[in-house]
Simulated assay, not measured.
Amino acid sequence: MRAARALATLDEVELGDHVCWRMDPSAAFPTDARAYVADGALYGDKLVFVAPSRGASALTRPASDRLPPASVVLDLPDHADTESVLAAVRREARTAVRQGFRSVRVLTERVPTTAPGGAEELLAQELKLDEFASESGAIVVCAFRPSLWDAPELERAACMHPHETGTRAPRPAFRMFSTGADRWSVDGVIDSECAAAFNAALRAAMRHTAEVRLQFDTLGMIDAAGMQALVDAARHLPGRRIDVEGANETVRLCWELAGYADAAVPVVMAP
């Protein structure tokens, strides 16, 4: 069973992990991931680097930290959509199995985008990468330079990773991560400060499926703003539905008192 946790270093990654790496301001990508890369060779994993076009040269230029032979660089367009990214990563994972590797280790540096819909596209990619790691046993590390990111945007992205490491890597208010096809575990606290991030995560998860299942077994608390964010996400697209499992008695009572236990609301809250 997957569980959220913090890592002291990238040396602690395990199969199935999806890690938010908050890089030190002085870190060099991918040089500072050399232990992660070296461990890939040690354990028989294939390295897959996901790089936008503008960043590919940094990964392929001759240098002392030249990439190992058992690696591939996916030189994708700057604004590659989620389906293209996942298709490329899955293709490399299938190839790695045929080649006799244990698994794949994915490494990518995330860069902010100002493209229309770019913020939601990033969340959708992170959720799908998490689902990929969960189902395949791959390891996925997403590097973020905090200095490049608006704090709320970085917080939203961090919430899509069950694991985190790096300089001053605080635990996100909540985390949403895959526990099966279209099934997501939500832990932590969802209140007015992170309700917008929760809504964005749910909308991203519902983009290509009519029904999403959430597990609230480890959720500490969800307030009125969080409940409204949940309902608004379910209503964002027609014909969508969210099934919530594992909600404690207090959460279910608050849900009923708020008037959401109604057939017209496309969210079902169950024990």
Rank of each mutant, 00 (worst) to 15 (best):
L219F: 09
W255L: 10
G246K: 05
R252H: 03
D243I: 06
Q228Y: 09
G220T: 05
A258Y: 08
C254P: 02
D243K: 03
D217W: 12
G226D: 06
Q215K: 03
Q228F: 04
L237M: 07
T218M: 10
N248P: 13
L257Q: 10
E256Q: 08
M227T: 02
A210K: 11
V244T: 12
T218A: 15
A261P: 04
D243E: 11
A247W: 15
Q215R: 05
D223K: 04
Y260C: 00
A233T: 09
L253F: 01
M221T: 15
L237R: 05
V251R: 02
I242C: 08
A234H: 05
D223Q: 08
R235A: 01
T218I: 07
G259L: 02
A261H: 15
A247L: 15
F216H: 05
L219I: 08
A233M: 11
E211Q: 13
I222M: 05
A247T: 13
M227Q: 08
R235P: 03
A229D: 14
I242T: 06
V212Y: 01
C254I: 04
G239R: 02
A234T: 04
A224T: 14
T250W: 15
L214H: 11
A247Y: 14
V212E: 03
A225V: 05
R213S: 12
Y260D: 00
L237D: 13
R213L: 01
D217I: 09
R235C: 02
Q215N: 12
Y260N: 02
M227G: 03
M221A: 14
A234P: 08
R241F: 01
Q215G: 08
A225M: 09
G226Q: 09
Y260M: 04
Q215V: 08
M227P: 01
L230S: 07
G259K: 01
Q215M: 10
D223M: 08
V244N: 07
M227A: 07
P238G: 06
W255R: 06
R252F: 00
Y260A: 02
N248T: 03
V244E: 08
L214S: 05
L253C: 02
R213Y: 03
I222F: 03
A233E: 04
A233Y: 04
I242R: 12
M227R: 02
L257H: 10
L214E: 09
E211L: 11
R241L: 13
G226N: 10
L253N: 13
R240I: 04
L257T: 07
V251D: 00
G259P: 05
R241K: 14
T218E: 09
I242S: 11
A258F: 08
C254S: 12
R252E: 02
V251E: 06
G239H: 04
L237S: 10
E249L: 05
M227F: 05
D217K: 09
E245R: 12
E249V: 04
A258P: 13
M227D: 03
A224C: 12
G246V: 03
A210D: 13
L230V: 06
R240W: 03
E245K: 08
L257A: 11
N248F: 12
N248C: 12
E211S: 10
R235Y: 00
A234Q: 10
I242H: 14
A258D: 13
